[in-house]
Amino acid sequence: MTGPRWLAPLAALGGLLVLLPLIGLVSRVEWPRFWELVTSEASLTALGLSLRTAGTATLVVLALGVPLAFVLHSLRGPMRGIVRALVLTPLVLPPVVGGLALLYAFGRRGLLGEQVGGSVAFSTLAVVIAQAFVAMPFMVVAVESALAARSGRHEAIAGTLGASRTRILLRVTLPALGPALATGAVLAFARALGEFGATLTFAGSLAGVTRTAPLEIYLAREADPASAAALSLVLVLVAISVVALAYRPLRRAP
């Protein structure tokens, strides 16, 4: 499908809007010191923490987001719209609002009480919770759209052959959802990697414990802008490679 010719200049403008800031970032990197800057102890600690927490958050989102998508898909009537809107809220919440909301739920004075709140406060777990909170909608949306595109015929056939619901889920539905799961996981990981506002508000910032790469960049930008630019570029490269390697646009099921 090719659009009319007048789309091209608009597309070029759109592309520039996305590319120009990236080029600007690259232009500020001090290349002779690049390696030294990104392998500094602070940078490596922050990057390592980011990869660990984003990876864990992705697993959490897989384990909880997929069931959530199934339940959402099984809902009928207005409930479905309401529940979907609620589940997608983190997508549209300003990050600081998300952080405050997490604080009121999991904080020391939050809904779950001092016992739970005290052990979550300022811990790496708090970072994972914040990341899973903001990344969950990506998985739910990906899986729910894939479910909606399925006819259910294969599941019905498996049912008539006597397969249990669990067996149908594990042997028929989930394998067919593979691409959607991959897409959801990749987007969730990328979003978790970039999480900033909720982490800062909710989890705090301590090297090796809660100071992920985005927080390190925010801090370094004050005292050491060259280091901030270098680490930013690394984060951009990680995000681009993850998305390029694993992201495939969803296709309609045959």
């Binding site: 604080l103 004075r109 406060a121 300022f122 705090g204 910032s205 301590l206 927080l215 004050e222």
Partner: peptide, 21 residues
């Protein structure tokens, strides 16, 4: 032995006012 090293005074105040710290 801080639990967090915040970016700004606002960050410190927020953590204390909310009872996190």
């Amino acid at each position: 032995t801080p639990a967090s090293e915040e970016q700004s005074v606002t960050g410190v105040l927020g953590k204390v006012a909310s009872g996190q710290a």
